[in-house]
Design a protein around this nucleic acid. Structure first.
Length: 295
DNA sequence: CACTTGACCTGTCCGC
DNA sequence: TGCGGACAGGTCAAGT
């Protein structure tokens, strides 16, 4: 679900809303969403202040003054929505209905703050999780210890992208872009979008990529991720930001969810197929395979 | 070891 | 309307 731009958007929103607040309580109705011992909650969560909000790959990190961090992964349908103590009224805001209806049956975890505000972790499919981790150990635990580089770091060059991708040179470029240990943060939407931008067929094997294709793909990944952050991310169905608002990137997408529509570059029809067991959108004319697929 | 597929869940949409 | 199946933005374990 939420990919890098969506988690980054939530990070930016929550930074303005909850940094500096003190946690008063945390509750969960589903152990897979969040589970912790009473003593850990008492010692490291209650009365801890939020001192920073960060992002690593598609995970959000809420750093506490207790030297612990709440690490959150939204997976496919997770939402993190903050609601202040003052009720909205008057209507007209696109997210009013959501905000006034929380908590609802998808609410898995609720965190309450000293100002009366609440942070709701909603997750229809229950794939997401919140874990309490000592801040200095985050990089050593499962999930975080395998992640590849952040594509929006200024140290992320096209040569690094090439070296990372070539660790899986017999795989299709799309499946490798989705592999979080190769490059962190890219998911199904931005894989399709950046491959279209770089004119690379999603099923092309990494070993057939040319240098200029790495250069173009590198440029497109950064362009697409930044554009989406600017648009507040992509809202297909579930995603909303920390204020409960949807993102608008999908109104700008070139291929994602645009099967049957005209390619904005060449006037051919966009197709949808399966690559790496994922729905995959591309233009068959300007994203061609280097040779006929055999078998 | 490299790579692919199923499982984890709930909800929605589409064809019959 | 109802029912079955496919599908949905992610990741991991287990399979080939």
């Amino acid at each position: 679900m939420p990919e890098l731009p969506e988690v980054e958007t939530i990070k930016l929103g929550l930074s303005k809303l909850i940094v500096g607040l003190e946690i008063r309580g945390i509750s969960s109705d589903n152990p897979k969403s969040f589970q912790s011992s009473e003593s850990d909650i008492t010692n490291f969560i209650i009365k801890a202040k939020i001192i920073d909000i960060r992002r690593r790959a598609k995970a959000l990190l809420i750093e506490l003054s207790s030297k612990y961090t709440l690490a959150i992964h939204l997976k496919m349908t997770g939402q993190l929505v903050y609601i202040g103590s003052k009720k909205r009224y008057g209507g007209g805001h696109p997210s009013d209905s959501l905000i006034n209806s929380l908590p609802d049956k998808s609410t898995r975890v609720t965190i309450t703050f000293n100002n009366g505000g609440k942070l709701f972790f909603n997750d229809q499919r229950k794939f997401g999780w919140i874990r309490l981790i000592p801040t200095d150990q985050i990089n050593y635990i499962n999930f975080f210890n395998k992640l590849g580089p952040e594509p929006l770091d200024n140290t992320f060059t096209w040569r690094i992208l090439k070296d990372r991708l070539r660790l899986r040179k017999n795989s299709t470029i799309k499946s490798v872009l989705l592999d979080q240990s190769i490059v962190a943060g890219i998911g199904n939407i931005y894989a399709d979008e950046s491959l279209w931008g770089a004119k690379i067929h999603p099923a092309k094997l990494v070993k057939y990529l040319k240098s200029n294709e790495y250069i173009n793909l590198h440029k497109e990944i950064i362009y697409v991720l930044n554009l989406s952050i600017e648009k507040g991310g992509s809202s297909d169905k579930n995603y909303v930001d920390a204020d409960g608002k949807k993102g608008s990137y999908l109104t700008f997408s070139r291929v994602f969810r645009r099967e049957g529509q005209i390619c904005p570059r060449c006037d051919h029809l966009i197709l949808k197929t399966r690559v790496a067991s994922r729905g995959t959108h591309y233009c068959p004319y300007c994203q061609r395979l280097p040779r006929k697929p055999f078998k």
